[in-house]
């Protein structure tokens, strides 16, 4: 799923449900499958292996002799937000996978994504070209579930509006940035990039936050989780995507975690 191609059936909520069953104790694969997709439901297909494998990829479970066990501390799956924060901390491990590459390309596209087809299932060719990785409609449909869940944007019908506020906040938490402390913008970027290269260009030379990241930072500021400042005469500056109505000053030098 994350290592390679995406599949629509391996959605986060199924992985979470699976983990919660496994949390109660190791269980053989068939029994687990029967709990989630019992034969009597007469489903046409069995999805179990798809989401079980995704959970395995993400390191949430382990399998030994067909016995499935929880591979993480219980607090990782205390609730689905905890699981999301955990997954967001591990995305860089899959930086050659389809999900990672498509997400990166999506953010690089900036607000130009609005000029593309509003049904992302039709954007396979575009992302195939951008990622050099074959991306088909199924992969894009699958991507939307995870892009929404992991906090890269908001799903509107079959389109994702880029706004990484949820992902960025998870990353800020994962980076253990201190609250009520003002960081220079470079300090901030350095602290979060190990986990956020997926949306922040690792080549930070241009010192510009793309549209989706800028939306995320502004949204976090609006809800009072961070504060962005432009302190004059500071050389360490980054530029947010220009949103005229938001502010005529898109340059920031410092970010405080509130």
């Amino acid at each position: 799923m994350f290592k390679d191609k995406m599949v629509t059936t391996a959605i986060p909520e199924r992985i979470f449900a699976l983990c919660k069953i496994v949390e109660k104790g190791p269980i053989v694969s068939y029994e687990l499958k029967e709990k989630m997709e019992p034969e009597y439901l007469e489903n046409g297909s069995v999805y179990f292996n798809d989401y079980k494998n995704a959970a395995l990829e993400l390191g949430l479970i382990s399998i030994s002799d067909d016995l499935i066990s929880l591979a993480v501390d219980a607090k990782v799956i205390k609730n689905i937000e905890c699981m999301r924060t955990y997954i967001n901390s591990r995305l860089e491990m899959f930086n050659t996978g389809q999900f990672y590459l498509v997400t990166k390309a999506y953010f690089e596209k900036g607000s130009d994504i609005f000029k593309e087809d509003k049904n992302i299932a039709n954007l396979g060719p575009l992302f195939t070209q951008m990622t050099n990785y074959p991306v088909d409609a199924v992969a894009m449909r699958s991507w939307r579930f995870w892009a929404q869940f992991l906090g890269f944007g908001y799903l509107q019908e079959m389109f994702i509006i880029p706004n990484a506020c949820v992902f960025l906040w998870d990353t800020i938490c994962n980076a253990s940035l201190e609250k009520e402390r003002m960081y220079s913008v470079s300090e901030f970027v350095n602290a979060i990039t190990p986990m956020s290269n997926i949306i922040i260009d690792s080549d930070t030379a241009n010192r510009t936050f793309n549209y989706g990241v800028s939306n995320g930072l502004r949204a976090l500021q609006d809800v009072g989780k961070i504060k962005m400042d432009h302190i004059l005469d500071q050389k360490d500056t980054w530029t947010l995507y220009q949103l005229k109505a938001y502010s005529n000053d898109s340059t920031i030098t410092h970010i405080s975690i509130m």
Binding site: I161, Y211, A219, D222, K244
Partner: peptide
């Protein structure tokens, strides 16, 4: 769709 002048701000507004 968000394909119109200044839609970038509207999209930001809605999501936030």
């Amino acid at each position: 769709s968000w394909n119109y002048p200044d839609a970038d701000f509207d999209a930001y507004l809605i999501t936030t």
